[in-house]
Nucleic acid binder design. Structure first.
Lengths: 267, 267
DNA sequence: AAAACAGTTTCATTATTTGAAACATGGTTT
DNA sequence: AAACCATGTTTCAAATAATGAAACTGTTTT
């Protein structure tokens, strides 16, 4: 019930891959086994197969597994082809240098925030986000802003997937608080993070919308309570909106090019 | 031997994933089918499964597939746990700012060069490399340098996998030229790229060796013929060697820590 | 020496994958 | 409007691959 795995053998193998990645450190076979739904020989063969395929890397000295290099290779292709990063890069770099703060570019993956690019301020601040990293949607500026603009029939299933873990005194505490916040964001047109994920970290976030109103992602300007406040960030909204619009326009031009030339598939 | 596929259903599915990634652009089902060894329904199901699993992304408007966002998520874990990048970062940043040139950090993936990190010079130069990108081993500084120091029984199988495509007038033209070059690099202790991959781009590369002499990767200082030459790069060898040694030491300390404290995974 | 443990292999059973063929869908031509 | 065609989707019996209890190996602990 809980596990929507399905997808036969391939789905199960990928579940194992996720499990290894989730450990966040080199992991032994027995550690995997201890929390795996699969019996020993089954898990063993999955791990063997994934290692053969370089989706996992095995360290013979320490007898541990980590996610493999083939993933880095594949992800580079994903990042180039399936994210807004290559298109948005010049725009968010310009934005960051104009406002002098860190800028994030994020997209929704499942119901969570995937940071696909990040341009640091001249004086960078230590914070959770990092390109490639996943974060919660219900307590981040980009996350809430994207949720506010997705198709209404998908909102509830996304809300259901939020953990509503309390990170700070300002973290929204449940579905109802989030629904109200999303209404606010929809009417206002952009969202804030009021130290909801990390103490001292605040941001304004703007959705990247297609002409038809579909959300492609969001960008945010992030700062700290030490050197800025919400009013100061809100002052950047015109620039933020301009940037989001430019990115949106470029996406559209990229998706429907003149297509006068067709690339041959030749070997 | 030739086909390393094997690995049953999972191996085949990953083969499809590679194929999509290799296209480098959104691809239609029929395009995949045209160059797939699998019959139509089989390929169809693989693509469905991979899309379900978010290893592929489907664009319903254009009816095309691209590598999926789950890969970016997984690769972030791979990059953090299975590459030298997190350990080497501070060292290569220091090196880059000291020499004022672009610095690469690379590892071998299969028999090819995987760029796992890159620090740009103050005045960056357009070039092929990019973190996450794969490149040829036989015609890059880092590639040749790593090949020069891998276990001798693995060298030939790696050489056999090189394409020996001629990129520039300086590209090594075949296995024998490469073997000789590797001998030179072994005796000298470091390698050069003499415009072998891209015209005007040159570099010096230093291996990152463990105490037992195993290659973990390589770093390089890259420049252009416009603003430097090989002698100028060679002058940076002491700094390069120092950096490589520092990284190597950190790898060792990281691999065999006192292990007194265990890091919690908490958010 | 015995017991405990982590990792690996075996093999009959079971479930999944396979692919030829048929079907659906949308667009184009006659 | 009928015939055609290219793409994408479904069916179903046969072929294949995955499964897991149990047994085995090699290493460490008692």
């Amino acid at each position: 019930m809980a596990h929507v795995t399905g997808d036969g053998t391939v789905g199960k193998a990928l579940e194992v891959l996720d499990q290894v990645a989730a450990f966040g450190r080199p992991v032994r076979f027995s550690e995997l086994l201890a929390q795996s739904p699969f019996p020993k020989p089954t898990l063993y063969r999955f791990v063997q197969t994934l290692t053969n395929q370089r989706m996992l890397a095995y360290d013979p000295d320490r007898q541990t597994y980590t996610p493999g290099l083939r993933l880095v290779r594949l992800a580079h292709a994903a990042w180039e082809q399936s994210t807004l990063a290559p298109i948005a890069r010049p725009h968010i770099e310009a934005l960051s240098s104009q406002v002098g703060e860190t800028v994030h570019l994020a997209q929704l993956d499942h119901a969570h925030v995937l940071y696909v690019d990040k341009v640091n301020a001249a004086q960078p601040v230590e914070m959770y986000s990092q390109a490639g990293k996943i974060g919660p949607a219900y307590c981040t500026g980009v996350g809430k802003t994207m949720l506010a603009f997705i198709a209404s029939d998908r909102v509830e299933e996304c809300i259901a997937q939020q953990s509503f873990h309390i990170f700070t005194p300002h973290t929204l505490t449940g579905p109802e608080a989030l629904r109200e916040e999303l209404r606010d964001i929809r009417t206002r047109g952009y969202g804030f993070d009021r130290e909801e994920h990390e103490p001292g970290i605040i941001c304004v976030a703007m959705p990247i919308l297609s002409e038809s109103g579909r959300v492609h992602g969001a960008i945010s300007v992030t700062s700290t309570t030490e050197r800025n406040d919400l009013a100061g960030l809100e002052a950047q909204v015109p620039l933020l909106r301009e940037t989001a619009t430019s990115i949106s326009r470029d996406i559209h031009n990229w998706s429907f090019p003149d297509h006068d030339k067709k690339q041959a598939t030749g070997g």
